[in-house]
């Protein structure tokens, strides 16, 4: 399902003087289809960078990434949107579109996939009910609490029934009860068949839901399993 081999990522340094900052080096692992993995590591270890590679928002500077049985590096750029539509992403900072209602934010992936208005309404309503926001569907993100925004972001990520679901510290700003609820939603997606990767700092939660883990430190994979 997901295979990294010898993956490295270098960012250009902020100075722009040709210097680079190495965020990931020599990363290699395989995530079987239908698995659930935690992605752990201290701040700055490279968790976000790794997830952004996995969701095809970045290209590695070295190594090979294989997704859904395809070597991404060999694909034409025009072939990537099709793959991205099979990946659900939950960002730490939600990344909701501020001028769209909760309903429209959640409907966005379906509209991008070309679904008609009539065909998407029921699905969006159902997912909003699933995340407990049925009565907030017309609210703009600014009018929602952090936990509610996070659940809208999750609804947007899962509405396409993604084959791969990646979540970057999805419980970062939430209290314990909200966090447990979010993790339960992600586990539910796993139960429904998605391959799930969740980056997290919250060791209490990780201990509450034991699962295999990828452990990063200073851009290196230090443990797997």
């Amino acid at each position: 399902m997901v295979r990294f081999s010898g993956v490295g990522l270098r960012y250009p340094a902020p100075g722009g003087d040709g210097a680079v900052r190495e965020a990931l080096r020599g990363i290699g692992f395989t995530l079987p289809e239908g698995s659930f993995h935690w992605l752990l590591g201290p701040s700055g270890a490279g968790k976000t960078s790794l997830l952004r590679l996995m969701q095809l928002a970045l290209r590695p500077t070295e190594g090979e990434i294989e997704l859904f049985g395809k070597r991404v590096g060999r694909l034409r750029r025009a072939a990537l949107p099709r793959l991205r539509r099979r990946i659900g992403v939950v960002h730490q900072d939600f990344r909701l579109l501020a001028h769209l209602s909760a309903f429209d934010n959640v409907a966005l992936p379906l509209r991008i996939a070309g679904r008609t208005e009539a065909a998407l309404r029921a699905d969006v309503a159902e997912i909003l009910r699933w995340v407990g926001l049925a009565d907030r569907s017309e609210a703009l993100p600014a009018g929602l609490s952090g936990g509610e925004q996070q659940r809208v972001a999750i609804a947007r990520a899962v509405i396409i029934r993604p084959a791969l679901l990646v979540a970057d510290e999805p419980t970062g700003n939430l209290d314990a009860e909200q966090a447990a609820r979010v993790i339960a939603l992600l586990r539910e997606m796993h139960r429904l068949g998605s391959t799930v990767v969740v980056a997290s700092h919250a060791m209490k939660l990780v201990e509450a839901y034991p699962a295999p883990a990828l452990r990063l430190d200073s851009g290196r994979l230090v443990a797997h399993g």
Partner: peptide, 16 residues
Amino acid sequence: RDAIAVLHELGATDGD
């Protein structure tokens, strides 16, 4: 810019 990046990451093509 941000909204374009979100659409792009959700699988919108350049054409879209």
